[in-house]
Design a protein around this nucleic acid. Structure first.
Length: 265
DNA sequence: ATGGTCGGTACCCGA
């Protein structure tokens, strides 16, 4: 069983790259964020032609938007209101072996925006979103439920999840209020961060490189914003983990690259 | 120390 998560940053613009990715990886399940596409305009036919006959969509015009594309049938397609908004940031489906949650945590601002909830409402929204998710997960599940939660979490929790821990401590995505909240969410259901399971934490690991650098390979100033977590019943099934860094060098790339998890299921 | 680029959409917002 191969799962893949990718912040595609417009599914319509990058459909050819998505088709290439599907052919190359033969993933069973593809989870997308930032599709930026209303459901009625989603390129369903092209994806069904690739074998993804089971699709759960939740899109809107211009912003956010998610999709779960699957070669296997699922039940219980859900969409969730978060922080009082139906802004297409959390969906889930249920497979025989596990329930799958696709998450797109708010960015909380960009560039040099201040990481201060008092003056930056987007940052407040991000902190609230993680708090709400943590509470909801603890209220809804126990750690013996087989769950996979993945997506663009927009937080790089560990020192080697960013190119410079010291220089980015005040940069949104790596500030202590964010990283402590994400760790609290992770430990609440005893989630395994599959990156940490497969790549020692003293090694750098990135999944995103800003568009604002003329050449992302030159100084490799990346961050790991994209995550795949599993609950304890699934840790025995973990087989392999890969970040498809090459996709950052594709023609018209997303600023995020796909992350893959293989499971013995 | 600062500004740098995308995508969607409609001349700006969000990342």
């Amino acid at each position: 069983m191969r799962l893949l998560t990718w912040n595609i940053n417009s599914v319509r613009l990058r459909l050819p790259l998505l088709e290439q990715l599907a052919a190359q990886t033969e993933a069973d399940i593809i989870c997308l964020q930032e599709t930026k596409c209303p459901d009625e305009l989603f390129p369903l036919d092209a994806l069904i032609a690739l074998g993804y006959k089971h699709i759960h969509l939740w899109g809107q015009k211009s912003y956010n938007g998610q999709a779960i594309l699957s070669k296997h049938p699922f039940t219980l397609p859900m969409t969730y209101t978060r922080c009082g908004q139906d802004d297409c940031r959390h969906i889930s489906v249920k497979f025989d072996a596990f329930e799958l949650h696709n998450l797109y945590i708010p960015a909380g601002g960009s560039g040099g925006d201040p990481p201060d909830p008092q003056i930056n409402p987007k940052f407040q929204h991000k902190l609230d979103f993680v708090d709400e998710m943590s509470a909801w997960l603890s209220d809804t599940y126990t750690s013996d439920t087989p769950l996979i939660m993945l997506g663009d979490f927009n937080i790089a929790p560990y020192e080697n999840d960013v190119w410079s821990h010291k220089q980015l401590l005040k940069a949104i995505s790596h500030t202590p209020p964010e990283t402590t909240r994400l760790e609290a969410m992770r430990t609440s259901l005893n989630w395994t961060d599959t990156r940490a399971h497969f790549i020692p934490l003293d090694q750098k690991s990135y999944s995103w490189w800003s568009y604002r650098s003329p050449d992302w390979t030159k100084n490799n100033r990346g961050r790991r914003l994209d995550h795949i977590w599993v609950t304890p019943p699934l840790t025995k099934a973990l087989q392999d983990f890969n970040i498809l860094t090459d996709y950052r060098s594709a023609e018209k790339p997303s600023d995020h690259v796909p992350v893959i998890l293989d499971l013995k299921i």
